[in-house]
Design a protein around this nucleic acid. Structure first.
Lengths: 143, 143
DNA sequence: AATTAATCAGATATGTTTGTCTGATTAAAA
DNA sequence: TTTTAATCAGACAAACATATCTGATTAATT
């Protein structure tokens, strides 16, 4: 295995990034998102539904309904999606799985992993979705 | 979720680290390893069995049998265990799950993740088990 | 030679993640 | 007002990860 984020979380991140490239207040159907990202439609739909409960995504029912971001992309960070879907467990536990890994009882790679973890956290908190816009568009429109 | 290594891999890393603290050529029973590390005995046994196929662990059957490292701890790196159990997939794929993530078609965090990934790889390749010995002993003998 | 204590192999069980299906509800458009 | 196309809720299914069980094999000890 060896996974950083669950599939659910990966899809959630991709979908939210996709929504951040759209005009504010235009809802996008799960079908369009699924097609653009090559994700099962029902699955991405469920994921976005759950993100509405966290105030990240807005949804409109009925014909020509769909999903949009619930707030301005400059108010959303990648960590918000990760926290909502996978939780922040990785930023606590020991990378080798030792119990009670701490400064007092460190595992052999405790310090190095600590540094890495901080950098990873920073990668997810340092920028907001709007700052990724160009890169996101470029990625999603390409193989 | 959000996992770096599978349970299998975590247990494998712990077990191999434990074995590296023992005198060369003394075999340790799965039961002792399981107790010391609070891991299900049958599970750690299976994991070590599979590591014998990779030439990392040596096993001796029969009464007073058990497991030992198949080579000197200064010849074994953490990455060897990871490669054997989880594979090196994390060091290839896109952290956000985008397909074909590459320098030409980078995802929004491509560069930052690349740096992190290199550091993680270095953490697993930069030292050999013997260099962890003191820290491993200290960790395993404590809560 | 019999007993004992270990690995080993393979089947089975349990749990979680991932993915699909069905029908209810909602609201725009005809 | 009917049709249509979407979310939504909940059940279901398939795949995989985790864990346990059973019995065979092995080899030291009695």
């Amino acid at each position: 295995m060896t996974v950083i984020f669950s599939k659910k979380c990966e899809y959630g991140l991709q979908a939210v990034l996709y929504l951040s490239t759209k005009e504010e207040d235009t809802v996008i159907s799960a079908e369009e998102i699924a097609k653009k990202l090559s994700i099962p439609k029902e699955f991405v739909s469920k994921i976005l539904q759950s993100l509405t409960e966290y105030g990240i995504v807005y949804s409109r029912k009925g014909k020509s309904g769909g999903f949009a971001l619930a707030k301005n992309p400059n108010k959303i960070k990648l960590i918000d999606i990760v926290a909502a879907i996978d939780g922040l467990g990785v930023f606590n536990g020991c990378v080798l799985g030792f119990p009670n890994c701490s400064p007092d009882y460190p595992c052999p790679v405790h310090d190095k992993w600590g540094t890495l973890r901080t950098m990873a956290y920073d990668m997810l908190t340092g920028q907001t979705l709007d700052q990724f816009k160009n890169r996101t568009i470029n990625k999603i429109n390409n193989p």
